[in-house]
Amino acid sequence: MSEEPRFTLDGRTVPFQDGQTIMAAALAAGIYIPHLCFNPEFTPHGSCRVCLVKVNGRMQASCTTPAAAGQVVQSEIDEVREIRRGLLQMLFVEGNHVCPACEKSGACQLQAVAYYVGMLAPHYTHFYPRRPVDASHPDALIDFNRCILCELCVRASREVDGKNVFAVQGRGIKAHLVVNTPSGKLGATDFSLSDKAAQVCPTGTILSKHSGYEIPIGQRLYDRKPINVVGDVAALAVSKGGRRHD
């Protein structure tokens, strides 16, 4: 009789089912691997690379790599942590992430993961791109300066809401999030705050209007405990300081 297959993650034995990724198996075992474009409710995207781990000596994105019996996976080692920190630093300089002026600060997954990987400064030269802010929608606004191209809103709108409101246009450094209307304005779509796409942004790109800065500094989602303890903002109910509508 065959036993349940297993691999080791930082020395811990992790069981998995056939077809599961390393990330999914780790999540099921209660082990945190930092991530941004991954959300367990959606097909893995493998684009942000923050969830990379060393699998049998080779760097792989854990959200897209299938688990296999006997794999030796390393996550919380200096080599991996340094690469993750570098990725976060590049994300911070590529956009305009002005935490002191952002409503999402304190409950922002990008910021929380940066804290988790020990980023004290962005290190690289800032791009200071000039991207627009779209406030045309009555209930929501989009600040494209904060977009990290995780495509979670694209996937949520297409797969869950059936609206296909968002898309990514352009390639390489020119890739950017767009709204699928002739005017490119969110106000011209049937986007709604109850859409799944409004609840999955790991940054402060998609925000609701008419409320803000309601939770005092010190009591926000990630103020006291790190993201590996608290969980992703998109996975938590609104009543718990998260974004998920129940």
Partner: peptide
């Protein structure tokens, strides 16, 4: 030592870079 958001990333004043 770089102390604070402005020294580290330009901070609020760098919003004029827009």
């Amino acid at each position: 030592i770089a102390m604070g958001a402005c020294a580290i990333s330009g901070g609020i004043p760098a919003m004029r870079n827009h």
